[in-house]
Design a protein around this nucleic acid. Structure first.
Length: 486
RNA sequence: GGGAGUGUAGCUCAGCACGGUAGAGCAACGGCCUUUUAAGCCGUAGGUCCUGGGUUCGAGUCCCAGCACUCUCACCA
């Protein structure tokens, strides 16, 4: 297409420049090689001592700004840590001056020389050595506005990351947060494990799975929708505290809060219950807020979220009463409310109507962190029912900024009840998906210790902690439609 | 799937209400410049105005259809 031709014209110009560079005696290979002894740009700037003219520095990175003043060229170099200015003068560069004048935005270079300050006070490497490490053949985005076409940003994240520094910052923060979470759990004796992503039975949640095929075994496999049933097998095996930071795959719609593959922290602690999980959840997220955010009141989209502790704990039925006005025991009132809300409730079971009304009326109001506790047992096939009120289950969900962030249970460890719950669940499903995980039931029969289990939606948590309103802004390569050839 | 919005130069955006043959900044190309900070100055080049129809003497602009993207609703443990 025309756009492709236009682009190739710019590429053509750069290729011609590359050809000229190859002819220079001072350039061995315009795609460079190992380049040792570099320092992070920001580290160089912070060790700089004004007035000391014996300081040397050596950095490598991408040219993001270039100011050519004739016999003097100033370059802003971006590396993993930030930026530093490199100054090049014809006098100092001597035989490498020709190469200097051929540098372009986007090229990756290494530069070394004396560290100093310019008239305006900018810390600068006055280069006496220049190495071209990679010639860039495509023009970079606009240097001030960066790349803002949202589709292009996701498609070409490799450009987005260096053209928009705040994007790099957000993903660095995501890495740091993951590291903190791992450290926290390890300090409490949790073991990090890996369980199958390809499963013969897609269990542990109710979602449509992706299906794939193994050729030599000639069998279909599901990409996991949750690791839950495998992690519980590890409890049976004697791993009393386990966690997995895992990718789940769900074949459902996409939205600001849903990507088909998403990251979940799932953990199990033997001899604990959902109250222990609640304390742990509040502790770990509060630690992250303290460590990675400014203050305890965070802006998210058009909302302000107050993380001050303690967080609210309210039962499912209390919240239903508070926001829908309905008593959970009065099913006629709940059905009437559903009609008012325009929900098609005729075909639904009572508990589904209740939950639909709950989602429609309550969830949007849960902006500050709120533990919703004690769900109707019929919604929770993997959860231990409450001793005094078996129609409710020992489950909580944590909502922050009206998003479901965490989900936890006192795990059901009675194999007979578990098997019965599976049977009830299977009745409502299509034949193709309906498979009893009898091996899991066998595991329970050997005896699973009572335990608390917790799942935290990592992507959504990162969204809240970094103020990103779209899940695609916290996933490096979100799923997109392929570009159509035309 | 429904609704709303967007699509113009490599990038970031004007122009469209009221139709008259395409604009700016950055980037590029050619000059000038030894202290710039989104460097500056002079000059040059760059467009299937998403695609296809229609209305019109004439469409980037109005109408219809399609495509892509964004937001939103629905669906979604």
């Amino acid at each position: 297409m025309a756009k492709q031709e236009e682009r190739s014209k710019y590429e053509h110009q750069r290729r011609e420049k590359l050809a000229r560079i190859r002819q220079l005696d001072s350039v061995e290979d315009p795609y460079g090689g190992r380049y040792d002894g570099t320092e992070a740009a920001e580290a160089v700037k912070s060790r700089f001592r004004d007035g000391d003219e014996t300081q040397q520095a050596r950095c490598a990175g991408r040219i993001v700004l270039l100011r050519d003043i004739g016999k003097l060229v100033f370059i802003t170099l971006r590396d993993r840590s930030g930026t530093i200015q490199v100054g090049m003068s014809r006098k100092l560069m001597s035989e490498q001056w020709q190469l200097t004048k051929l540098l372009e935005l986007g090229d990756i270079i290494g530069a070394a020389g004396q560290l100093g300050k310019t008239k305006t006070g900018e810390i600068t490497i006055w280069a006496d050595s220049l190495t071209l490490l990679s010639k860039s053949l495509l023009p970079p985005p606009e240097k001030f506005h960066g790349l803002s076409d949202i589709d292009l940003r996701y498609r070409q994240r490799y450009v987005d990351l260096w053209a928009n520094p705040e994007v790099m910052e957000r993903f660095k923060k995501r890495s740091a947060i993951m590291s903190t979470i791992r450290g926290f759990l390890e300090s409490r004796g949790f073991l990090e494990v890996e369980t199958p992503m390809m499963q013969t039975i897609a269990g542990g949640a109710a979602a449509k799975p992706f299906i794939t095929h193994h050729n030599s075994l000639n069998m279909d496999l599901f990409l996991r929708i949750a690791p839950e049933l495998f992690l519980k097998r590890l409890l049976v095996g004697g791993m009393e505290r386990v966690f997995e930071i895992n990718r789940n795959f769900r074949n459902e719609g996409l939205s600001r809060q849903h990507n088909p593959e998403f990251t979940m922290l799932e953990l199990y602690q033997a001899y604990a219950d959902y109250n222990v999980m609640m304390e742990l959840t509040e502790e770990i997220i509060s630690l992250l807020v303290k460590k990675y955010c400014q203050g305890s009141r965070l802006q998210f989209d058009d909302k302000t979220v107050d993380f001050s502790q303690p967080w609210r704990r309210a039962t499912y039925s209390e919240l239903l009463k508070e926001y829908s006005g309905c008593d959970i025991e009065d099913i006629e009132a709940v059905r009437a409310r559903a009609k008012e809300l325009g929900l098609d409730e005729d075909e639904m079971d009572d508990v589904v109507v209740i939950n639909t009304v709950f989602e429609a009326t309550v969830e949007d109001n849960l902006v500050d962190p709120t533990f919703v506790i004690d769900y109707p047992a019929a919604l929770c096939p993997l959860t231990k029912p409450k001793k005094d009120k078996p129609e409710y289950a020992e489950r909580f969900e944590l909502f922050i900024a009206a998003m479901e962030i965490a989900n936890a249970y006192t795990e059901l460890n009675d194999p007979a009840i578990q098997e019965e719950n599976f049977r009830i669940q299977l009745r409502g499903q299509q034949e193709s998906m309906a498979t009893m995980d009898s091996d899991f039931i066998s595991a329970l029969k050997y005896g699973m210790p009572p335990a608390g289990g917790l799942g935290i939606g990592i992507d959504r948590l990162i969204m809240v902690l970094t103020g990103a309103a779209n899940i695609r802004d916290v996933i490096l390569f979100p799923l997109l439609q392929p570009v159509t050839e035309s």
